[in-house]
């Protein structure tokens, strides 16, 4: 069974007066349920575009994203979220993504929390939109506050929290809806190095506890290696999948110390390999830009 299937997606942005930009070129991917996949690549490789297409914020020029519905049994498919705008595929329990929906949770970089609400109310936002009872919401919120280690901060306004704590809230807010797939767009990008390492541990822990399908986009080679059970390296112009890795580090990270893993020879070897790959891509872009100029 597949949780998510990205089927031959192309994305072309036409710029008035310029050449069309091929942000994504025939990208295909299948995700198994419970898979944690990190996506890495130099800027301009289309990784954020890809995530926005999966989230339903952008509609691709060609191809489609198909979402498996694990709740469905038999032929009829149940589609949660804003359903009217979502097309169906006959004979399967799947739906084609045509817009945002509650079954795909998002975690953004800092600044996407609702600063006018307290920590609790940010986390309660999704269940409240779904019309859950306030008793149910309370149970969910308390459980999640504990899960992300913020049990004493529920009543605080989010703007009083540090960057790392705010991202804990963002994770909890996303989990409150119990989404099938979690899409993370550079969630730790704005954090300082130490907080970032701690939060990587939390992401792994949450993945282990909830067994959600997670796609994580990052700039950091180290983060992509450490968190990605599966790692996709994308290349720019046109945006495409350059290489794919299966990695043991995320699983090992559940038991071993992250510092040890990141210092281990096989981790370092992979890191250098990927770094030189991305380095070459950047060189190539610079070369192209140089030719054009």
């Amino acid at each position: 069974m597949k949780a998510l299937s990205i089927q031959d997606i192309s994305m072309v942005f036409t710029v008035p007066g310029g050449d069309p930009v091929r942000a994504l070129d025939h990208v295909s991917l299948d995700l198994q349920p419970g898979e944690l996949m990190s996506v890495l690549g130099p800027s301009g490789c289309g990784k954020t575009t890809l995530l926005n297409i999966i989230a339903g914020f952008l509609s691709p020029t060609a191809g489609q994203v198909v979402l498996q519905d694990p709740q469905a049994n038999g032929g009829a498919s149940v589609v949660t979220g804003p359903g009217a705008d979502r097309g169906m595929i006959a004979d399967t329990d799947a739906s084609v993504v045509t817009g945002p929906g509650a079954e795909r949770g998002m975690v953004f970089q800092q600044g996407a929390l609702f600063e006018w609400l307290t920590v609790e109310k940010n986390i309660a936002f999704g269940p409240k939109m779904a019309g859950k009872s306030s008793a149910d919401i309370k149970v969910t919120v308390e459980h999640l506050l504990e899960t992300v280690g913020l049990q004493d901060f529920g009543k605080k306004p989010v703007y009083q929290l540090s960057g790392g704590m705010q991202q804990r809230v963002a994770l909890a807010r996303c989990l409150a809806n119990d989404p099938e797939v979690i899409l993370m767009d550079e969630p730790l990008g704005a954090l300082d190095a130490l907080t970032r390492e701690k939060m990587q541990g939390l992401v792994l822990q949450l993945w282990d506890e909830t067994r959600k399908t997670i796609i994580l986009i990052t700039h950091s080679v180290e983060e992509a290696l450490f968190l990605g059970e599966r790692l996709i390296v994308m290349a720019p112009r046109p945006g495409r999948i350059e290489r794919e890795y299966r990695l043991p580090f995320a699983k090992r990270g559940l038991n071993e110390s992250p510092r040890e893993i990141k210092a281990s020879p096989d981790f370092i070897e992979k890191r250098e390999e990927i770094l030189s790959m991305i380095w070459e891509m950047e060189e190539e872009i610079m070369g192209q830009a140089g030719d054009a100029a």
Binding site: T80, G81, G99, G101, M106, A112, F114, M129, C174, N177
Partner: peptide, 22 residues
């Protein structure tokens, strides 16, 4: 910020809810 609007839609908010709550 568009990420706040996107976040609300991803959390299942309707257009009216995005208007009133975000």
């Amino acid at each position: 910020r568009v990420s706040k609007v996107h976040a609300a839609y991803s959390l299942g908010a309707s257009k009216l809810q995005v208007l009133l709550r975000v």
